[in-house]
Simulated scan of single mutants.
Amino acid sequence: MGRGKVELKRIENKISRQVTFSKRRSGLLKKAHEISVLCDAQVALIVFSTKGKLFEYSSTDSSSMESILERYERHCYAERQLVATDSESQQEGSWAMEYPKLVAKLEVLQRNMRHYVGEDVDTLSLRELQHLEQQLDVALKRIRSKKNQLMHESISQLQKNEKAMVDKNNHLAKLMKENDKKVMEQQKMQQQQNPSPAFLIPAPTPLPFPPLSIGGTYQGRELQIRDESNVQAEGETRTNSNIPSWMFTHIAE
């Protein structure tokens, strides 16, 4: 009976894994040597173990390893350049095909822009004019809706700013009242600590005594007023009330 198919998977046992690596490496190097001899091929083989140890093989000598690697790099670079050239040529071909389409789209857009501003509408049919009118109506509705939205947002922002300013003014007024109250309290405390002297009330000035006169002065005045013949004596008596009236009578005699 033949041996069954072995499942390829990582060997968990380190010793078994190392033994298997050594056997398979030797077989791989043997096969590389056989293909290089039998087929006259340039073969380069590089193997790194799990511990990082390098094992290499070249078909002839160590110098052939570098030449094979350089040839491999040149080949890869040439393939990349070829792929890039093919992609560029494909892009150029696609751009050449897309250019007329883009030019046609640009012309249509420019014509529509002229129609939107009211130019070149003479060549339009009634149906096209109606369609253009509908488009303009829709555009105006959108513009007005956006304008109203911006106006509402601006008004709400202004209202918020006004409310904030009113609150700030009220707060400042409250702070001013508190500051005035503190100043008044400080002034009262200073007056209580350093009372000011009472104002001196000046003594009332004594009134001048009335001039002394001999009795009968007032009676003489009444007699002189009744007597019409002594008008001149009465005038002199009024000018100088300090002289008794009986002296004027003796002077008149």
Rank of each mutant, 00 (worst) to 15 (best):
K14N: 07
G52R: 10
L124C: 01
F21D: 05
D122L: 04
Q42H: 15
F21H: 15
R74M: 06
V6A: 12
Y218Q: 07
F55R: 03
R144C: 00
A139R: 04
P210T: 04
I155Y: 05
N242M: 06
N170F: 01
Y72A: 14
K23I: 12
K160F: 00
K181G: 07
Q134T: 02
Q157V: 01
A139V: 04
A203C: 08
I225C: 05
L106G: 13
V183G: 07
E222M: 10
R238E: 09
T20G: 06
Y57P: 02
Q18L: 12
L132M: 09
A203Y: 01
V103F: 06
L38P: 00
S229K: 10
K23Q: 15
S16T: 10
M1H: 01
R142K: 04
R221D: 03
R142I: 03
Q219E: 11
V108S: 12
I225S: 08
S62D: 14
V166K: 07
S94L: 15
V138W: 00
F48P: 04
P208W: 04
Q224Y: 08
E178W: 04
L223C: 02
A96P: 02
K147I: 02
W95I: 14
V231Y: 07
L223Y: 13
A32P: 03
H115L: 12
T237Q: 09
T205W: 09
T50A: 12
G27L: 11
Q187P: 01
S241L: 12
R71C: 10
Q232I: 14
G235P: 00
Y99N: 12
G52C: 05
T217M: 08
F21L: 13
A96W: 01
E66L: 11
D40Y: 09
E185L: 11
E178N: 06
A44E: 10
E133L: 06
A203N: 11
M97D: 10
A41Y: 12
M151F: 03
I68A: 09
N240H: 15
E153C: 00
F248W: 11
R25S: 11
C39S: 13
Q190N: 09
R24I: 05
P211L: 09
R71N: 11
V6E: 04
H131E: 08
K147Q: 04
A96H: 01
I46T: 12
G118Q: 06
R114F: 13
Q186T: 08
F21V: 03
R74W: 03
A164L: 09
V103A: 15
K105I: 06
M113C: 11
Q224M: 14
S49A: 13
M165G: 01
R24G: 03
S156N: 07
R111K: 12
E178H: 07
M184S: 11
S156R: 06
E70R: 14
E162S: 09
L132P: 01
N169G: 00
R142G: 00
F248V: 04
S213Q: 08
S16V: 13
R24H: 08
E88G: 01
P208N: 07
